[in-house]
Design a protein around this nucleic acid. Structure first.
Length: 413
RNA sequence: GCGGGUGUAGCUCAGUUGGUUAGAGCGCCAGAUUGUGAUUCUGGAUGUCGCCGGUUCAAAUCCGGUCAUUCGCCCCA
């Protein structure tokens, strides 16, 4: 291995992987576009406060995973660990509440200081969609329907399962938290170390614990669904009804909670079993208090983020690049003629490259490797007669064609 | 942050109880064919055996550390 390695948890993306990832983004932009979403590109770093406040001081992301630094001007900055907070900040900064509801799509890199694993990197890439200013469950349905459409278009309809839950509104969640902590405190000594810590910081997370002992205790724990007030219940019922009508299959997963503090009501994750420990491929939910918390006008929001690497690994749908036409000028005069012809062919939308070095054998060899469909050979003979040799590489046939007729003679089968 | 696996050519991997000049396939380069590829034939180069140190007459091989990667925990997309 070379000494020039990329930093831990980062990597170079090229070839099929790059194509697959681009395809995920393209599909996302197209699908989100059909739901009326418009692009928003926020900065890759923000004042640390933007992430610290909404995510919660106790969250793993803030407490140990952010890339935070002081710049030369002494500002406390953080590389974005996720999209939602930055999008909400942009919403406030630009006065977007003037025009609700606001449908915003973003994509790009995000950064978390985590232990790298397959499908988990320190620099990773997300697609992100947020719908702001619509507090009714219909918005949640739209968002999930959009995610489902995207996943199906990526060919993942069979590989992914929607886990759906509700966290209830604030009143329900507070009541439930109280009941849960009271129950769990009875078993405090038997809980895993992690869960004992969570009892203080984020008790809902204990429901999600993979520790066998915890699982047993959790089995008889009070259920969130028994503590939902009528508003929360109706909200959730409407979401489920909507999903049924749109045709999105789901399972109600009572143990599904979210890592970020700002979520309420709907929480969901599309999960796969094909990526080892990194099962979640796309996840999100509702976050009605977030914008207000950031200092903006009270505005509700629903959103989700998808992991581009994870989606790309599952989907493997990147299109092969267009087959090029390769021009091979065999002398100085022909070299300049080749520019002319190349531009002419590009005007017709063809992919054209020129190979100006090496003998013909080498050039043919390279053309073959580039999966070229045609080679255009221009030498002194041809130049004199105003023609080029057009060779179809799939079957080896070739013929002399007048310069003006080349574009018409190139037919892909 | 914790625990396990792995690290040999550009890629995928062999390499015996430590033993002399470290191998294969693919790919790459050259020639057979000076203006014609993908097939075939012939020839060639693959290299700090991840890195640093230790044990030993002798280390790709054993030991320690370190870096990277991978799997699990944790967390999440």
């Amino acid at each position: 291995m070379s000494k020039l390695q990329p930093a831990r948890g980062t990597r170079d993306i090229y070839g099929v992987e790059a194509r697959n990832m681009t395809c995920v983004v393209d599909t996302f932009r197209r699908v989100a576009g059909t739901y009326g979403f418009e692009e928003l590109a926020t900065p890759i770093f923000e004042f640390t406060e933007v992430y610290k406040r909404p995510l919660g001081e106790a969250s793993d992301i803030v407490s140990k995973e952010m890339y935070t630094f002081e710049d030369r001007g002494g500002e406390e900055l953080t590389l974005r660990p996720e999209f939602t907070a930055g999008v909400c900040r942009a919403f406030i900064s630009n006065g977007m509440q003037q025009n609700l509801p606001c449908r915003l799509m973003s994509y790009g890199p995000a950064f978390r200081y985590e232990r790298p694993q397959k499908g988990r990197y320190r620099q990773f890439h997300q697609i992100n969609a947020e719908l702001l200013g619509q507090d009714t469950p219909e918005a949640d349905i739209d968002m999930i329907a959009m995610a489902w459409r995207l996943l199906r278009e990526l060919g993942l309809g069979e590989k992914v399962v929607l886990h759906l839950n509700t966290l209830g509104d604030k009143e329900s969640r507070t009541a439930y938290k109280e009941a849960l902590v009271t129950y769990l405190n009875k078993f405090k000594g038997d809980l895993s170390e992690d869960s004992q810590r969570r009892l203080e910081s984020n008790p809902l997370r204990i429901l999600d614990s993979k520790d066998e002992g915890d699982k047993k205790i959790v089995t008889d724990a009070p259920k969130l669904s028994d503590h939902l007030n009528e508003t929360s219940l109706n909200f959730f019922e409407t979401v489920k009804k909507g999903l049924d009508i749109v045709g999105v299959p789901y399972i109600h997963d009572e143990r599904l909670v979210r890592g970020m503090d700002y979520y309420c009501h709907t929480a969901f994750e599309f999960v796969t079993t094909e990526l080892g420990a990194q099962g979640t491929v796309l996840g999100g939910g509702r976050y009605d208090g977030l914008i207000e918390q950031l200092g903006g006008p009270a505005t509700s929001g629903v959103g989700w983020a998808g992991g581009i690497e994870r989606l790309a690994m599952l989907a493997d749908v990147g299109e092969a690049p267009e087959r090029p036409v390769v021009i091979m000028p065999m002398g100085e005069a022909a070299t300049f003629k080749a520019f002319e012809i190349a531009e002419m062919l590009r005007n017709k939308g063809l992919t054209v490259t020129a190979d100006r070095s090496g003998n013909m054998k080498k050039r043919m060899n390279r053309a073959d490797k580039a999966n070229a469909a045609f080679a255009i050979i221009i030498g002194d003979n041809e130049l004199e007669q105003g023609t080029a040799m057009l060779k179809r590489l799939d079957d080896g046939t070739q013929s002399e064609i007048a310069f003006a007729d080349i574009a018409a003679a190139i037919q892909f089968n």
